[in-house]
């Protein structure tokens, strides 16, 4: 039984500009102990998908299961129990920390909500987690603004770990950090994964980070997963033209410059193209692609792709 699974998950919003199909039919699985990367450009729906999986946003259709239990329509009370096991780390730790509360108060709050022990025990738990994520012991009495970006992200990680979760959804956890700090935080996440046996869903736009950090990768485009493969396969044999374009666009010191691989912008999720949703930007699009949406099919064990021409790419 997978730790987390979603089938045909949809999150749509009614807006002035019409129906916004942010998440538009996603199937995914996160196995126990696995780090799954979710990559895509801004507006592709990856953050909405992350929030939907935690039920921070309610899905329009589809099904979410956590350890075999259907949590799609669970009421808030029973959801609270599940949330002990699924936590989230956000991109901007400052925006997710109450500026008027000390770090001690911020970290104690989840323990109070979930009635985890009396006051002295809670204090001990907080002190323990602060040490674990590499913050100074006196952090307890200080306020978020007194910390640098990297330290704030350590606070965010500490809060996520407090209730011994099994899965953490990390939404761009290192994107706002400087390079020298990014490595510190990634290393910390790896240590915590090993120590607590965690699974991660790691949402990121940074392919190099995903390359290092993930076991399996999902590539998302306009509300759908277009390719899924284990880390090794995806980088050595990407099949979807969008995956290839993303990789080619990353400026890398180790290779010469290439012409921009894709023209145009991401279409709006309120006006998703017919057929394959990538066909408006795809260099390989055929008439079939303009009319028929490709199914997400398995091309070899563990490697799925939603593309009509994926087999012919070299």
């Amino acid at each position: 039984m997978p730790l987390l699974s979603a089938s045909d998950l949809k999150t749509h919003y009614n807006t002035r500009d019409g129906l916004l199909r942010s998440v538009d039919g996603v199937d995914l699985v996160v196995e126990r102990g696995e780090t799954v990367g979710l990559v895509g450009e801004s507006g592709c729906g990856k953050s909405t998908l992350g929030k939907t999986l935690l039920r921070l946003v309610d899905p329009t259709a589809g099904r979410i299961e956590f350890k075999g239990e259907d949590i799609t329509t669970l009421d808030q009370g029973r959801l609270r129990n599940v949330r002990k096991s699924i936590q989230m780390i956000f991109q901007d730790p400052f925006a997710s920390l109450n500026p008027r509360h000390t770090i001690g108060e911020i970290l104690e709050a989840p323990l109070v909500v979930h009635k985890a022990g009396g006051r002295p025990e809670r204090r001990r738990t907080v002190a323990g987690i602060i040490a674990k994520v590499g913050l100074p012991a006196d952090a307890i009495n200080r306020y978020p603004h007194e910390f640098s970006g990297g330290q704030r992200q350590r606070i965010g990680i500490a809060r996520a770990l407090l209730l011994n979760p099994e899965l953490i959804v990390c939404d761009e956890p290192v994107s706002a950090l400087d390079l020298s700090i990014q490595a510190q935080i990634l290393n910390l996440l790896v240590e915590m994964k090993k120590e607590f046996g965690l699974s991660y869903l790691f949402i990121s736009h940074d392919l190099s980070v995903v390359r290092y950090f993930c076991d399996r990768v999902l590539v998302m485009y306009l509300g759908r997963i277009v390719e899924s493969a284990d880390n090794e396969t995806l980088w050595s044999d990407p099949r979807h033209p969008y995956t290839r374009a993303l990789m080619a666009a990353v400026p890398d010191p180790s290779r010469p410059r290439q012409a921009a691989p894709l023209g145009g912008d991401l279409p709006s999720p309120s006006d998703i193209p017919s057929g394959c949703r990538f066909h408006t930007r795809c260099p390989l699009a055929t008439d079939l692609c303009r009319v028929t949406e490709p199914e997400f099919r398995t091309i070899k064990p563990g490697h799925q792709v939603a593309c009509h021409v994926a087999d012919h790419i070299n």
Binding site: S208, F213, D252
Partner: peptide
């Protein structure tokens, strides 16, 4: 050396 690389 702190930066992960795509081609590695």
């Amino acid at each position: 050396s702190a930066s992960p690389r795509l081609k590695s």
